[in-house]
């Protein structure tokens, strides 16, 4: 992969293969392209509904896929009652997500999750807790989850988080721009967020559960990518509907289209509602079939999830022992 095209210096860690992938530079807003985007809901739902029946991974393959899913989790805590202790416990789990005996039985080297995702005030704690693990800290930002704080403060929040050590910033878009079709405003906002992030990667949260239509999801995805988003992400986890397969199909198709047009690979992060290993594997089959294997890496795909890890651990133990497992047999995060 050519690294010379990258405008910004890349982060050099084993966990983050962004070293291989030039960042999305964005492009001029193409309103004609945006206006021409279509998303036929019933057809998309049919495709999504049949996907789990079309793809199946079994035995060692299943274990490998679950492990791969695990390494792409943004292990997340976004609660009002988060404390330093709570966040340190989560970071410890992020660095050692699977019991060593299980890894040994599968002849796997140690693995970690993709990132730890917290609110701004917890960044420093997390960065310290993860020191030496190579696991980046992601921070939700820009008045998360509603994104309705003053624009200046939203930009300032990004900058503060970056200087506090967050290497990934999950911003929320102004849903009203999408709902009113003001794509220029959304583009400008996203460009400003991207610029404020500097070297930190920016994930654009579309809050798809509040966009009303899949067509809006497609258009918002494209606008954010044109404005330079490194990732597009479904939800904050706080909307009534979070990640779904139909929404994922629309967003991954947008990513594919953008890659075909510009050569830039943008990442995808479904967030909220994915709590079962089986569902996670289905998401990966969707990514593999719609985008390709390159996207099955933590630099281009993340699950925003908190309870998914626990289910994967239990399924891995089942794979190793042949017996169904129990939650208390695995360390909590």
């Amino acid at each position: 992969m050519p690294t010379t095209r990258s405008k910004t210096p890349s982060l050099k860690t084993a966990q983050l293969p962004q070293v291989q992938e030039p960042r999305n530079t964005g492009m001029a807003l193409d309103l004609d392209l945006i206006a021409g985007l279509q998303a036929n809901t019933s057809a998309i739902e049919r495709r999504a509904a049949t996907l789990p029946g079309r793809r199946s991974v079994k035995k060692d393959y299943q274990a490998a896929w679950m492990l791969r899913a695990l390494t792409m989790i943004d292990l997340t805590t976004l609660s009002g009652d988060d404390t330093a202790g709570r966040v340190r416990r989560l970071c410890a789990k992020a660095a050692n997500p699977v019991r060593a005996d299980l890894l040994a039985a599968m002849k796997m080297p140690s693995v970690t999750v993709g990132a730890v995702c917290v609110y701004h005030d917890m960044i420093e704690t997390a960065v310290n807790a993860l020191d030496g693990t190579g696991i980046p800290v992601a921070a939700v930002s820009t008045g998360f989850p509603a994104g309705l704080s003053p624009f200046k403060l939203r930009l300032a929040e990004i900058r503060e988080s970056v200087s506090a050590g967050a290497r990934e910033i999950d911003i929320v878009i102004s849903r009203r721009h999408a709902l009113t079709g003001n794509w220029t405003a959304l583009y400008d906002e996203m460009c400003a967020f991207r610029e404020a992030c500097g070297d930190a990667h920016v994930k654009a949260i579309l809050a798809t559960g509040e966009l009303g239509t899949l067509r809006n999801v497609a258009r918002a995805s494209w606008v954010c990518m044109m404005a330079g988003a490194d990732f597009i992400k479904t939800s904050t986890g706080k909307e009534p509907v979070n990640a779904t397969l139909p929404v994922s199909l629309v967003m991954t198709r947008a990513i594919r289209g953008y890659h075909e047009l510009t050569g830039h690979r943008v990442g995808y992060k479904p967030a909220g509602g994915i709590s079962k290993a089986k569902d996670a594997v289905t998401y990966l089959t969707l990514i593999k079939d719609e985008l390709g294997d390159r996207w099955l890496r933590p630099d281009l795909f993340r699950f925003g999830a908190s309870s998914l890890l626990g289910d994967i651990e239990r399924q891995l133990e089942h794979h190793v022992t042949g017996h169904y497992s129990a939650g208390y047999r695995h360390a909590i995060g």
């Binding site: 199946s56 991974v57 492990l67 791969r68 796997m108 294997d293 099955l296």
Partner: peptide, 15 residues
């Protein structure tokens, strides 16, 4: 084996 599949991310047989 699992480690290899972890890298290749192939589907494998599901008979």
């Amino acid at each position: 084996m699992i480690e290899d599949i972890f890298e290749t991310m192939e589907y494998g047989p599901a008979p």
